[in-house]
């Protein structure tokens, strides 16, 4: 065994925790989106690692592809909402985002 599955999962776990902490601490809405991207990327890493090390075969990679395409769509929608919010309120501070419309 060149690299064990547990090591791969730990790298994914560190990325996941970093993403969660980023989502919790960043006040900029784009920063929160960056944290979400980190979390989804960590899940993709786990999918591909399981595809390599377990007998489930190529299924993990197929799921990882969905896990790449769906965050791309999510980022597009999230940025459209952030831009709209910025146009309405002239701020991207999520602490002040208790209503989307003025």
């Amino acid at each position: 065994m060149i690299v064990s599955l547990e090591t791969m999962l730990l790298v994914g776990a560190i990325m996941f925790v970093c993403g969660v902490v980023t989502m919790a601490t960043k006040r900029n809405a784009v920063g929160v989106l960056i944290g979400a991207e980190l979390v989804l990327n960590a899940s993709n890493l786990n999918f591909v690692a399981f595809a390599r090390y377990t007998p489930f075969g190529i299924d993990g990679q197929a799921f990882a592809l969905f896990g790449i395409v769906l965050p791309a769509a999510e980022a597009a929608i999230a940025l459209a909402i952030i831009l709209n919010f910025y146009n309405n309120h002239m701020t991207v501070d999520v602490d002040k985002a208790n209503e989307l419309k003025q």
Partner: peptide, 20 residues
């Protein structure tokens, strides 16, 4: 996972990051 890696570079690094 060569195809997933290439897709990651193209869509994530090339597309989503440009959006962000």
């Amino acid at each position: 996972a060569d195809f997933v890696g290439a897709t990651q570079l193209l869509i994530y690094v090339g597309g989503t990051m440009i959006l962000v």
